[in-house]
Amino acid sequence: MSDPYRILGVPPGATDDEVKTAYRELAKKYHPDKYAGSPLADLAGEKMKEINEAYDTVMKERRSRGSSGGGYAGGSTYGYSQASNFSDVRSYVMSGRVADAEQILDGTPQERRDAEWYFLKATVLYKRGWLDEAYNDFSRACSMDPGNLEYRTAFNRVAGQRSGMYGGDDPNARRYGGCDGCDVCTSLCVANMCCNCCGNGYGC
């Protein structure tokens, strides 16, 4: 494995707190929930695993007694326990055969198109990058079955993206002064400068 400190983006002289903060930032960045439904989810999962391993290695080395644990679990957290009318579609989606999944969905007659159908259709559209229709179908699935947590989670994610939470412009957000840099970015810049002050050249 390559240098765990490099993966975490901190110099070897960093304090435990600095390592923890860096780890948390990275875990937030590559969190499986953020990438849920994305065609790149598996790559994010690998990255997360790498970060978890690096953090565990560093912490193990520092404490020299057992693993610190506490890492975020990698992998997607879909709960498919409930009975499904579209289990074949779900298994296609899971295995990345988006076109096959879509073919079955499109062949479903109008009267059998329930909340789950809209949810799955939206999932497929989302994977293909047809984000506008995906948003509408997630929203439809939610309104047809408001109690379903799976649909709600997916809808909240796309609604968050739409509002500019994960990058983009939020016209309703009022910023201070003349500078438009969103607060998160600005504080990250400041954090980066602090890193550079250490002089070890581990530019984040």
């Binding site: 990058g129 984000l131 948003y135 509002s163 994960y166 990058g167 983009g168 412009d169």
Partner: peptide, 8 residues
Amino acid sequence: VLNMSLSQ
């Protein structure tokens, strides 16, 4: 719609 693409 643009924000959604941007987040991706």
